[in-house]
């Protein structure tokens, strides 16, 4: 039994690399997801992940599947979208969700077009769903750097970030950290989406960010446990996704997201906080004892 779980990782270097890569990704991306969820910005994260695609695609156009070129392209595109969507939200009366939808559908379409112009269908699949099992040294180093930057920044901006989520007006009344925390956080989102992009692909990367937080919310109530549980869930999903895709030979990143989806489904029904069945049980018990 243990052999089934550890064997593939012991035997193959590519599995070890994938394990290391997804571990680093889980540690940095899941906490970001918790804050995105708490700020009701899950959809914004989704939109931003798609917005990175055209940038990465332009990188691809110039240098093929090069980690560096696609990272630089993705970072530029992501930062541009952060700025533009901020301006768009302030300058127009368009409801935020509809302008986000406009943003991400267009970017996705443009990105797919650019890649199809110069690459094959395999390249396209690679960009959309990532190459978890083919992480090279450059990609692993990138994941490590982004993980380190994320943890450091979160440690430094933790208090302002929390305060900005709860009570932005109050934070503004006592300090100037509000704006720094806000934009610093958005930059972290972009960075993590770019690193997620390499391991999980542009369509799936935001899933590893948002879903663990959404699942964890059904089980714990305080912020710190929420963050820790999200990291743990993300990593468990990665390991089970890697193993499943190894034995059944299906693409890895959809498998990882599917296992998180399964965890979400179970939590919606049986979660301690607001699970549907749980609430029903509590009600009937009250009813019986009354």
């Amino acid at each position: 039994m243990l052999e089934i779980l550890t064997g593939p990782f012991a035997e193959f270097l590519f599995m070890k690399r994938a394990l290391l890569g997804t571990l680093m990704l889980s540690i940095s991306t899941a906490p970001i997801g918790v804050f995105l969820m708490l700020r009701r910005m899950s959809l914004t994260g989704d939109a931003m992940s798609h917005a990175i695609l055209p940038g990465a695609a332009i990188g691809f156009l110039f240098a093929g599947l090069s980690v560096t070129a696609m990272t630089i392209g993705g970072l530029i595109a992501g930062s541009l979208v952060v700025l533009l969507s901020g301006v768009a939200a302030r300058q127009t009366d368009t409801a935020e969700d509809s302008s986000l939808a406009a943003f991400y559908l267009t970017s996705l379409a443009i990105g797919v077009m650019i890649i199809s112009m110069s690459g094959s269908n395999v390249d396209l699949m690679n960009v959309l769903f990532g190459s978890t099992l083919a992480l090279d040294n450059t990609a692993l180093i990138l994941l490590f750097i982004i993980c380190a930057i994320t943890l450091l920044t979160l440690a430094v901006f933790y208090r302002p970030l929390v305060m900005e989520c709860i009570d932005a007006d109050f934070l503004k009344s006592i300090s100037r950290y509000g704006a720094a925390a806000h934009y610093g956080f958005l930059i972290l989102v972009v960075l993590n989406l770019v690193s997620g992009f390499h391991a999980m692909g542009t369509l799936m990367s935001v899933g590893l960010m948002i879903l663990p937080a959404t699942v964890a919310r059904f089980w714990v109530k305080q912020l710190e446990p929420l963050i820790l549980l999200s990291v743990l869930l993300a990593f468990i999903a990665c390991v089970s996704g890697l193993l499943f895709s190894y034995y059944v030979s299906v693409p890895t990143s959809p498998t990882i997201i599917t296992s998180l989806g399964a965890a979400y489904f179970v939590s919606v029904l049986f979660g301690l906080n607001n699970g549907i069945v749980t609430q029903w049980l509590i009600r009937t018990r009250k009813h019986l004892s009354a």
Binding site: V162, C165, I166, D167, A168, F170, K221, L223
Partner: peptide, 13 residues
């Protein structure tokens, strides 16, 4: 601030 300006759902004691 007006208490409606505060996100009361945030998980904090």
């Amino acid at each position: 601030p007006q208490s409606s300006a505060v996100d009361r759902k945030f998980p904090i004691s």
